[in-house]
Computed example of a mutant assay.
Amino acid sequence: MATKKEPVKSMAEIAWVPIIVALIGVFGSIGVAWITATRTASEQIKPVVAASIGPQSSGQKLCSAWVKNTYRDSMIVPQQWKIDTCKKFMVAISANLFQVGCVYEDRIAWGDEGGGVPADNCGW
């Protein structure tokens, strides 16, 4: 009775096995890292939103001051700020132009330079 011989596998066929196993491990590790990072980022955003100066749905006040073609400094400010408070901020940072605005969940609305109230006003 003749026995059937198994074909001999070439080194190229055998060499791919550890590479494929390694790639599966790498992609698995990347997937786990991405899921962990996404969850961590979501958890880190929660305290920022909770400690926010005002609700994003009704807008948060922005104050921006700058020197043309040199620098601009913009920040979210407390709801108690008035246009004059933003102007004082401009003077404090040695700027010569200022603008007030509002930031919402999906947009930013700016007023005209010099303290013009934005059309989509959040309390200025």
Rank of each mutant, 00 (worst) to 15 (best):
Pro7Leu: 15
Val8Glu: 13
Val8Thr: 14
Val8Leu: 13
Ser10Leu: 06
Met11Val: 15
Glu13Gln: 12
Glu13Lys: 09
Ala15Trp: 04
Trp16Lys: 15
Trp16Glu: 09
Trp16Tyr: 07
Pro18Gly: 00
Ile19Asp: 07
Ile20Leu: 12
Val21Phe: 10
Val21His: 01
Leu23Asn: 02
Ile24Glu: 05
Ile24Ser: 08
Ile24Pro: 03
Val26Cys: 10
Ser29Thr: 10
Ser29Leu: 13
Ser29Gln: 11
Gly31Cys: 07
Ala33Thr: 14
Ala33Gln: 11
Trp34Gly: 11
Ile35His: 07
Ile35Glu: 05
Thr36Phe: 10
Thr38Ala: 09
Thr40Tyr: 14
Thr40Pro: 08
Ala41Asp: 14
Ser42Pro: 14
Ser42Trp: 09
Ser42His: 13
Glu43Lys: 14
Glu43His: 01
Gln44Asn: 14
Gln44Gly: 08
Ile45Glu: 01
Ile45Arg: 11
Lys46Gln: 14
Lys46Pro: 04
Pro47Glu: 00
Val49His: 15
Ala50Ile: 08
Ala51Gln: 09
Ala51Phe: 02
Ala51Gly: 12
Ser52Tyr: 00
Ser52Cys: 01
Ile53Glu: 11
Gly54Glu: 12
Pro55Tyr: 03
Pro55Met: 06
Gln56Pro: 13
Gln56Val: 15
Gln56Lys: 10
Gly59Met: 12
Gly59Ile: 03
Gln60Thr: 11
Gln60Asn: 11
Lys61Asn: 06
Leu62Thr: 00
Cys63Gln: 02
Cys63Asp: 02
Cys63Leu: 07
Ser64Gly: 08
Ser64Lys: 04
Ala65Phe: 05
Ala65His: 03
Ala65Met: 08
Trp66Val: 13
Trp66Gln: 05
Lys68Ile: 09
Lys68Phe: 12
Asn69Gln: 13
Tyr71Glu: 11
Arg72Lys: 09
Arg72Trp: 05
Asp73Asn: 12
Ser74His: 01
Ile76Thr: 05
Val77Leu: 06
Val77Phe: 05
Gln80Leu: 14
Gln80Tyr: 07
Trp81Lys: 08
Trp81Val: 09
Trp81Ser: 07
Lys82Tyr: 02
Ile83Met: 03
Ile83Lys: 01
Ile83Glu: 02
Ile83His: 00
Ile83Phe: 01
Ile83Leu: 02
Asp84Trp: 04
Asp84Cys: 02
Asp84Phe: 06
Thr85Val: 00
Lys87Ser: 11
Lys87Asn: 14
Met90Ser: 13
Val91Gln: 05
Val91Glu: 10
Val91Arg: 05
Ala92His: 01
Ile93Lys: 07
Ile93Phe: 01
Ser94Gln: 12
Ala95Pro: 03
Ala95Lys: 06
Asn96Ser: 02
Asn96Leu: 05
Asn96Cys: 06
Leu97Gly: 06
Gln99Asn: 11
Val100Lys: 04
Val100Asn: 01
Gly101Pro: 10
Gly101Leu: 08
Gly101Arg: 09
Val103Gly: 15
Tyr104Asp: 07
Glu105Arg: 14
Asp106Thr: 13
Asp106Val: 09
Arg107Ser: 15
Arg107Gly: 12
Ile108Ala: 10
Ile108Ser: 04
Ile108Leu: 10
Gly111Glu: 03
Gly111Val: 05
Gly111Met: 08
Asp112Pro: 10
Glu113Arg: 15
Glu113Ala: 15
Gly114Pro: 03
Gly114Glu: 13
Gly115Val: 00
Gly116Glu: 02
Gly116Arg: 03
Pro118Thr: 00
Pro118Phe: 00
Pro118Ile: 00
Ala119Asp: 07
Ala119Tyr: 06
Asp120Arg: 08
Asp120Glu: 14
Cys122Gln: 05
Cys122Asn: 04
Cys122Ser: 07
